[in-house]
Every structure is written in structure tokens, then in C-alpha cells.
Nucleic acid binder design. Structure first.
Lengths: 201, 201
DNA sequence: CCTATTTTGGATTGATCGATCTTGAATGGA
DNA sequence: TCCATTCAAGATCGATCAATCCAAAATAGG
């Protein structure tokens, strides 16, 4: 069962679409933009990805599987919760200020507001953000279970604080705040964790 | 010099437009949406406001002159910088979770990303955010000048931290985090300021 | 009254939106 | 070779975009 072979690389086209969406958001990126960014025709896009929305969701999935997965990587790969939270924020700032890449997180900035007919996309992004938040909650719960932080510390409150700060970094990056500036404010944010660290007596 | 009098209240129509834009963002709100929200015809909108973009800018100005001005009010009306920062955050959360109103800040969420032809709008909103940040910097510099915080504390770093956290609250509100949750994380954020407070010896 | 001026609703503009159709090219298996 | 199948380029779809035009309606001044 064969036929004419595809003349473009699907993964490469997806990455081009991802960067286009990352730069201009879901509604801000038109099919015409995608056609020129992916360098293939409209028909090819629909044959390979189904629709603009399906393409966007694949693009976000790709983002999340690579650059955008900084949070889950940091949260699972670091030995201590403090190191995990700090690395999550540092990696975020590094990603959000990478030269030649759009500034800020694709999941945060692509569609916080949108037309009624695109609410599904906006809400789906919200679910992605909440999943990231849930991972942060889990990691901080571990910190309490293993005695890294004081037993009276509230993991949910701490997680809410760090999620809020993380979301804010996207807006700051969008507004042109420097990598150095944002790295410095991470030091401020870490003081909140340090206040509940359980020190060996 | 007269003519047929205007049959609608301009301020009320502006407020309706403001809420529509606040809810769905700049690009997500179409002229058809505005026509039904403001309950006047397209021609009337253009006669009274000039263009969709001009209407949006007036809507943001109205937002800023009322609800959206919570930050400058808090920063100028409170006796201490700590109280000012805290009230700024509390008022933000209160506004962002007001029943019957869109969740999150209009200036933050309306157009962080957009089509190339609307970049002017997005950048203008960015300028608004930077102005708010500048006000925070000014207030914290005062705190150091008047000895409210330690002389070695860096006002810029502190301001960056609070601006980042404030921007994050909009995203959190958008994602349905509760007023109670966000108020609790404000307490966490205030620890950063408390760490540099100059205590009377 | 008449005229100049402004606003109104509704029709309509060209452009662009996302999506599809048509037509022909490119393949593998029979 | 012939055919079923898949892909691609470009034209094109109806819908919607922001914006404007037009003619009727409503006022103030003379």
C-alpha cells in the first residue's frame, strides 16, 4: 500500500510550526504564517496534521517533550527539593531568554485569552499548567515526608508560591527583563523555601 | 454646531467594551463581539472611538483609571513600603477573583502574543507593565532611603521579585486558583521583604 | 419652516480567516 | 506496464475579519 512519498520531513515541519506558534501564540499565527514557516502547502499541513488546532496541540506536545519539559526534568532529576525548585526556575529563565528563541513559555503565553471558538485550546493549555503545578506540589510533599522541610510547613502553599513565580517569569521575559535580572530574583524566591528548611540540629 | 444627538452613553459603552476585551483579549474580541457587548452599531463605534485599536487603548486606560490602578494606589497611599507591597498584592488578588468579572489582569493577559499586525498593541501593553514595575522600584527605593529596609538591600532585585510574582498572579487567577490560595501565597512572598526589614535595635 | 450637521442602522467593502477541492505527479505492488 | 494509492501545488470555498458607505433620522441655528 504505497503512494507518492512525502516530500518534507514531518518532525522538522512540526518544529517550525512550534516555533511559529511559540512566537505569536495560537490565534496570532495564521495558516499563511504556518505555510511560510513550515515551507509546505496548506493541503500538506492538513493531510499530515489534521487541522490548525491539532497541529498546535502537537506543537505544544513537542515543546513539552523538549525545551518545555524543563520543570518535570528538574523536579525529578535533582536530589533535594531545594535544588529541584531552584533548577526549575534557573532552567526556565535560561529557556525564556535563549537568543534566537521566543521569550517566555509557550504554554503560558500562547492563549491566556482567546475567541470563544478557541476556548478549548486555551483551557487545554490551562490544564497543562495545572499539571505542572501538580508536579511541584508532589515534589514539595516529598520534601516534607523526607524531613527536608519542617513538618508544619504547608506544601500546597509553598507550591502555589513557586508556581505563581514561575508563571510570572514568562511575562517578565516577554517584557524584555534580562537573564541576569531574573536570575537575581530567583535568589529572592528561594528565601521562601529556605525559611522552612529543616536544619540538622 | 449641532446635529443628531448620540443615542448611547459613551462611558457606559466604553465600560462594556472594556469588559469584553478583558474577558477575551484584544484579538479574541471581534467587532461583532463588541457590537453585541456595547449594543450599538459598527458605525457608531467607529464614529465615537475611531478604530478597534483606539477603542482597546481607551478601554485599557479606563481599566487603569479604575480597577486596574490598584498598584499605583497601593504604592502611594500606604504609609510603609511593606504595607504598600502587601496591599498591592492583596488588591490584585481581590480584583482578579471578583465574582462576575474576568479573572486576571487585563494588561497582563490581553495580548502577550499576537499577530504581526497587532504588535503595536502588544508592545504598548508591555510598556504599561513596565511602568507599573517602575512604580514598584520607586517605592522600594524610598524604603531604603528612609531606612525601612537595610541599606545593603537591592531595591531593583526586590522590585523584580514582586513584579514577577504579581504577573504570575494573573496567570494563576486565569487558571482558577482560589482567592484563598492566592492570599496564602502572598504571605510567602512577603517573607522576602521581611528578610531585609530594618528592625529598630 | 429650512439648512447644516451629526448619528443611526443596515448593507457592503476588500482582505483574510481556516479549510477543502481539483488536478497532476510520484510511488509500490500486481 | 498498469493501477491503486498517496502526496503536492494552487485555486478556491464560505465565513468572518475590521472598516466604510449610504440613506434615513434627529438635532440646533437661522
Amino acid at each position: 500500500m504505497a503512494g507518492r512519498p512525502r516530500a518534507f520531513d514531518r518532525e522538522q515541519a512540526l518544529r517550525s510550526a512550534r516555533d511559529a506558534f511559540w512566537e505569536r501564540g495560537y490565534e496570532g499565527t495564521s495558516m499563511a504564517d504556518l505555510i511560510s514557516a513550515m515551507n509546505i502547502s496548506s493541503a500538506s499541513i492538513y493531510a499530515a496534521f489534521g487541522s490548525k488546532e491539532a497541529l498546535f496541540r502537537e506543537a505544544v506536545a513537542d515543546y513539552d517533550a523538549n525545551d518545555g519539559g524543563f520543570a518535570s526534568r528538574a523536579l525529578t532529576e535533582e536530589p533535594t527539593t531545594r535544588a529541584a525548585l531552584r533548577r526549575m526556575l534557573v532552567d526556565a529563565v535560561t529557556l525564556f531568554t535563549r537568543p534566537g528563541k521566543p521569550r517566555g513559555c509557550m504554554v503560558v503565553l500562547s492563549a491566556p485569552r482567546c475567541a470563544k471558538e478557541n476556548e478549548g485550546v486555551s483551557d487545554w493549555l490551562s490544564v497543562q499548567r495545572r499539571a505542572r503545578h501538580a508536579a511541584i506540589v508532589r515534589r514539595i510533599r516529598e520534601a516534607r515526608d523526607y524531613g527536608e522541610i519542617k513538618p508544619e510547613a504547608d506544601p500546597e502553599v509553598l507550591a502555589d508560591f513557586y508556581t505563581t513565580f514561575l508563571q510570572g517569569l514568562s511575562v517578565q521575559a516577554r517584557d524584555g527583563f534580562s537573564k541576569k535580572q531574573m536570575m537575581a530574583s530567583i535568589d529572592s524566591a528561594m528565601q521562601v523555601f529556605d525559611a522552612v528548611v529543616q536544619h540538622p540540629s
